[in-house]
Design a protein around this nucleic acid. Structure first.
Length: 287
DNA sequence: CCCACGACCTGTGGGC
DNA sequence: TGCCCACAGGTCGTGG
């Protein structure tokens, strides 16, 4: 899944081909992704101009000139691919590169510039919805979201308040989108390692000072990943189809048995399951 | 209210 | 080579 850095990378890739453009055709090849598509999905989008393409947590948000907004979540395996028309041998004609996986391409948008934007999602954990732009904050998906980790409202005091008294492991608390919005399994593992905090420690019992360190390591990890164009795991590619490079910089994620990269630590990366998901950490330097 | 867990869906990689 | 199980970046609903 795309976590915040991957969604931001996708947003930056789509922005130049979507913003200011009108959607001339929207093709939904099935009636649902994870959830049913909203009523008259294609009809409400066709003819609309995209005024802005934003990101909130792991959601892409396309404001339209119709007063409505398209909301998209990539789930675990969703990806957008841009296909720009290419000149064919015949004068005036053009064509698109072949879709390598048409069986999982569920939605195709075409713009007035002729670009085709394909949404492909094998597992179909992603979803799309359309809501009145004025009511977005009240949308089911947004109502309970906590602060953006890269925004001004996320600081040590805010994090301390959000986890105050919490008995759940700090790993689980950081995955809770109402505590901070946009982290996922990879970057939580990475940020906790960088901060030297054990993923198993109860969230409400991490000291204020260490929560301050954690806020900083979350920012550092996310910003580095965005700068690298996101991670490249099995399914992730940015909107142009390029692979991200951040995977090469994982300190602990998917590195069970590898030496801890903290200077002088000497530990070995361990894996254990928390809340049904793999946690990677160093048992020596994360306390 | 808080927290843990299973469900959703498909593909892939590792072990035997 | 082939089969089967475990596991994969997320979120939501349920039930204790």
């Amino acid at each position: 899944m795309p976590e915040l850095p991957e969604v931001e990378t996708v947003r930056r890739g789509l922005e130049p081909v979507l913003v200011g453009r009108r959607l001339t055709r929207v093709e939904a090849r099935r009636p649902d992704l994870r959830f049913p598509l909203p009523d008259r999905f294609a009809a409400r989008l066709e003819g609309a101009r995209v005024e802005a393409l934003l990101r909130r947590a792991k959601y892409l948000v396309a404001n339209l000139d119709t007063g409505e907004t398209l909301i998209a979540h990539l789930g675990m395996s969703g990806r957008f691919t841009i296909r720009t028309p290419m000149q064919s041998m015949a004068p005036g004609a053009f064509y698109y590169a072949d879709d390598p996986d048409p069986t999982h391409t569920h939605i195709v948008f075409t713009t007035d510039a002729g670009d085709r934007i394909e949404y492909n999602d094998p597992r179909r954990f992603g979803f799309m919805d359309i809501a009145a732009t004025a009511d977005l904050a009240g949308h089911k998906s947004f109502r309970t979201l906590g602060p953006e980790p890269l925004g001004p409202e996320f600081d040590a005091a805010a994090l301390a308040a959000a986890v105050s008294g919490s008995r759940q492991p700090v790993k689980a608390a950081l995955l809770d989108q109402s505590v901070v919005a946009g982290l996922g399994n990879i970057y939580v593992c990475e940020a906790l390692h960088l901060a030297g905090i054990s993923p198993m420690r109860r969230a409400g019992r991490v000291s204020a000072r260490r929560l301050g360190v954690l806020v900083e390591t979350i920012r550092v990890v996310l910003e580095a990943a965005i700068a690298a164009g996101g991670s490249s795991l099995k399914d992730f590619a940015d909107a142009q189809g390029a692979l991200g490079y951040f995977q090469h910089r994982f300190r602990v994620y998917d590195r069970e048995g590898a030496p801890c990269q903290r200077e002088g630590c000497g530990g070995v990366v361990a894996r254990r399951v928390q809340a049904g998901r793999s946690t990677f950490y160093c048992p020596i330097c994360q306390t």
